[in-house]
Write a protein that binds this DNA or RNA. Structure first.
Length: 467
RNA sequence: GGCGACGUGGCCAAGUGGCAAGGCAAGGGUCUGCAAAACCCUGAUCACGGGUUCAAAUCCCGUCGUCGCCUCCA
């Protein structure tokens, strides 16, 4: 069975066939580093991390490129406001973002190119576009000539005429057509600038991605990804630049993730309704956010709220319940029970791949996992031993890892307090032996209040920090 | 105004032509001294109105609603 991928370009699911058999080249638009990253960025990064992990699981060798836009108007403006050097500002946020990705269990990219390190390629491309008539210089700026590109608008499904009718477009006096976009911007005094045939300046936003793709992945790539808010104008412009420069089809599959919704609105820097990754991780695990994404389709808007997060934490706990060891003193589950577990284990693996192959239907993949967990728990309740449970638990661990879930958890309390909790639990066990229920319940209640959950069984009491 | 997406049980959400996955929450039960955990059982005809079809949540048209893009944005 082949993997099927929904491409924004055709608005259809297509069979995934990479340019080079067994290898995948993948480019995802990273952040512009001018302020703290929010969980919308995390969502996008995580979505493509899941796709990347899955492709690797399916045996592809993935070259994954994610850029940092480290020079742009906003960075310059922010640096000026703060009175700091724009390079240092960007550098600081890049380091912070890297740490976030690590904390979110997102695999590092093969390469993290930066706009400022791509100047030669950028200038080569702009010069080439001018030479071919796709761009023109005007007052030190260089603009892309959209009229010249017959395919312009094909990704976002817009027509030039429709867009020109739009009232929100201002006519720049330097542009031939109001829809022309900047490839190169002349620098004002004091701004970061690079030498070019058109004077000192800096690249426009879109050209850097085209250049980085060319440098690190070549003229044609398999997957180009990003948030769906980048479809227009960013990706539209990227296609225009690259294809007009190379004369070849740029990306085979355009994959876009939906926006994270906070209180019914898109979370974004401009709306100011954002939760930073930092804030999120102070309260929740990376798994919780990932669970949220996995539970839904990556292309749809994702509802984010405390309620939904809480339900995610509970769902994770359920997934982890499958990994718990056998009951103390387990005598072994009957053969029929073990057979059912084996069958479910095989079904889970098959279903998982079948769902994920269908445009990364992670929601279905999670269902496969939950179904397996239920049967594991049934087998355990049936007296299953660790040896009997182990293979299926191994599958849960493996498939969870493919999705990027750590299923870690627990560990959350203060470990220094563990011996004290142990002592109190031992004390309560004594009280229970003497049937001093009131006292023993009092101990349990107080431990509960302190965030410790107790679980009694015939063979003793287990405790854990409440999730 | 233009383009696009979406509207599935209390909540989150798969499914996109053939008897509506999964998770959370809720109720009942088993186990337990009581709890907790686990296990078992219980629930939706898919925004609304037309149409196509032997058959529609799934296709078409219309209405209402929500959201995104059209300016920087993951």
């Amino acid at each position: 069975m082949a993997i099927r991928v929904y491409s924004t370009l055709t608005r259809k699911k297509e069979e995934f066939v990479p340019l080079v058999s067994g290898k995948v080249s993948m480019y995802v638009c990273g952040p512009t580093v001018y302020s703290k990253a929010h969980i919308g960025h995390a969502m996008s990064a995580m979505v493509f991390d899941i796709i990347r992990r899955y492709l690797e699981y399916r045996g592809f060798e993935v070259k994954f490129v994610m850029n940092f836009t480290d020079v742009d108007d906003k960075i310059i403006a922010r640096a000026e406001k703060l009175g700091v050097d724009p390079y240092e500002l960007a550098e600081g946020y890049i380091q912070e973002y890297r740490q976030h990705l690590h904390d979110l269990n997102i695999l590092p990219a093969t390469v993290n190119p930066r706009a400022t390190q791509e100047m030669d390629q950028i200038i080569t491309m702009i010069a080439g576009l001018i030479e071919r008539g796709f761009a023109y210089e005007s007052g030190g700026d260089v603009y892309f000539r959209v009229d010249k590109d017959k395919e312009y608008g094909k990704l976002s499904g817009r027509k030039l005429e429709d867009m020109q009718a739009g009232a929100r477009i201002e006519i720049g006096e330097l542009k031939e057509n109001p829809l022309d976009f900047a490839l190169w911007k002349t620098a004002k005094p004091g701004e970061p600038a690079w030498d070019s045939p058109w004077g000192k300046g800096r690249p426009g936003w879109h050209i850097e991605c085209s250049a980085m793709n060319l440098t690190h992945l070549g003229e044609q790539i398999d997957i180009h990804g990003g948030g769906n808010d980048l479809i227009f104008p960013h990706h539209e412009n990227e296609i225009a630049q690259t294809e007009c420069f190379t004369g070849k089809t740029f990306a085979r599959y355009w994959i876009h993730n939906g926006m994270l919704q906070l209180a019914g609105e898109k979370m974004s820097k401009s709306l100011g309704n954002l939760i930073t990754i930092e804030e999120f991780l102070e309260k929740h695990s990376a798994d919780a956010l990932r669970y949220l994404l996995l539970n839904a389709g990556y292309r749809n808007p994702l509802t984010f709220s405390e309620d939904v997060l809480q339900s995610a934490e509970r769902g994770l706990a359920r997934l982890r319940s499958g990994l718990k060891p056998a009951q103390p003193g387990a005598k072994g589950a009957p053969q029929a029970s073990v057979d059912a577990l084996t069958a479910q284990m095989e079904k889970a693996c098959t279903d998982f791949v079948e769902f994920m192959d269908d445009d990364f239907n992670s929601s279905g993949a999670m269902a496969a996992l939950f179904d397996l967990v239920r049967v594991i728990n049934q087998t355990r309740a049936d007296g299953g031993t660790d040896v009997q449970l182990a293979p299926a638990q191994g599958v849960v661990r493996e498939l969870s890892a493919v999705l990027g879930l750590t299923l870690a958890g627990e560990e959350k309390g203060m470990q220094a307090a563990d011996p004290f909790v142990d002592a109190l639990v031992a004390l309560r066990t004594e009280l229970r032996k003497q049937k001093l229920w009131a006292l023993s319940d009092q101990v349990r209640d107080q431990l509960t209040a302190l965030g410790v959950t107790l679980e009694d069984s015939k063979d003793g009491t287990q405790w854990r920090w409440t999730e």
